[in-house]
Nucleic acid binder design. Structure first.
Lengths: 231, 231
DNA sequence: CATTTTTTGTACTCCTGGTTAAAAAACTTC
DNA sequence: GAAGTTTTTTAACCAGGAGTACAAAAAATG
């Protein structure tokens, strides 16, 4: 039986391929890498990673609603057909961009906590790093924080993920603060759980300050005051 | 010359009145209050204050882009014709709603600073008040903070206003902190300017925490830690 | 009562933004 | 080279959302 165009081939990778004769078709994902290490069909003409990175920048600075598809596609350097085929839809693209941010910008920042210094030293370094980040003139703030705000009404999806990331960050900080306390670096009676929540709060606040284009002196004031509590 | 319907009467208050005969019309704003203290024309059938309050609630919880006209009109209980006549357009309505928020919710909160206690006591009360506000289950956070974020890319208009309100709040706090310092309520070397920025930052952070539906314990931790610095 | 001024309600327009359709292009496999 | 599979391109499509037109209604004026 020869396959002809006209009817949807259920199971074909992108569900956009057709046969002329009606019937139930069993379609295999042919397009896995062959013995030459090449895919079948027309090869991708854009770099998915690069495109995603560009999309991330746009979403990061403009938010989900604020970023139009046109704008995204222009930044990604591809046409809508390619985007929809590669990523699904706008929300899926946002989700991917959010993941990318978490993997790169966000969690990489948290690695400072495992630096060479003592627990408290590392925490203080992280806080100072936030300050430097937010005082950069083209700072887009924090993508996670922005996501929490824009999707705050939604119970799951990327909204839930963003809340979990903040919670995770809080947990990591609490852990580190406990280590600091055990090492006698915190004053007596200091509460690691409360301090962790406080630090996450400071980070979220800095995001707003950055977007409000607060002057450097104010942001430095925030950092200095925060560090005072970690003395 | 009798005026007839059909052609726009340039100068008529709402530019929606017509004459049948073409020509240049000189139209006077007749409809100022007359000797009966009444306007001419059909009287408003809705309470502008009430409608604005309803719009404020919607904008506050959903943001500018997030609030559709349908939704706003439903909440306001009027039809679009009335809304556009009374307020101008969606942005103007938002601006009015923002003003209303500042006058009521926001600046009223700042009045706590002029309460009966000492300067420092009043500041501490304000911080605690933030905590109570944000832990309420239906808390919509802070409209000013939300506005700063959503309009962060825009140089003027309500965006600028919102940034100024934050700055104003910071100035007021700095002033109060100086009073506290003069009264010997702050530790030696405390920096009122830095502390003021820090407190505004905490407030902005709490807004995010509220929208992230952080647990009460975390928010209390933020408040407690913040108050520590004001001891 | 006729006229003027205003608000109201309904229908409509216009536009933008997300998404899909369909065919052409580019490649592999047979 | 023909057939098969995928990406690219271009042109629509469609829904919803902001805003407008206009006639009808409701009041004051004189």
């Amino acid at each position: 039986m020869t396959i002809q165009r006209g009817f949807l081939l259920v199971g074909s990778k992108n569900l956009n391929y057709y046969s002329k004769t009606p019937g139930l078709y069993l379609v295999w994902p042919f397009n896995k890498c062959n013995h030459h290490g090449m895919n079948r069909g027309r090869p991708r003409q854009f770099d998915e990673k690069k495109a995603l990175l560009a999309a991330m920048e746009v979403f990061w600075s403009k938010g989900f609603e604020g970023a139009s598809c046109d704008e995204l596609l222009a930044a990604m350097g591809i046409k809508c057909g390619s985007m929809y085929l590669a990523f699904g839809d706008k929300q899926a693209l946002y989700d991917r961009a959010f993941d990318l941010y978490c993997e790169t910008e966000f969690l990489r920042g948290m690695e400072i906590l495992d630096g060479p210094g003592t627990p408290l030293e590392n925490i203080r370094t992280l806080v100072q790093c936030w300050g430097e980040h937010m005082t950069q003139p083209d700072s887009k703030g924090c993508f996670v924080s922005n996501t929490v705000i824009e999707f705050s009404k939604q119970p799951d999806g990327v909204a839930q993920l963003a809340r979990q990331v903040l919670k995770r960050m809080q947990d990591v900080l609490e852990n580190k603060l406990k280590q600091a306390a055990d090492a006698g670096e915190l004053r007596d009676g200091a509460n690691p759980a409360a301090l962790a929540a406080f630090l996450v709060n400071t980070a979220n606040g800095l995001n707003v300050m950055a977007r409000a284009r607060a002057d450097k002196k104010s942001i430095q004031g925030v950092i200095d005051s925060t560090l005072l509590i970690l003395a």
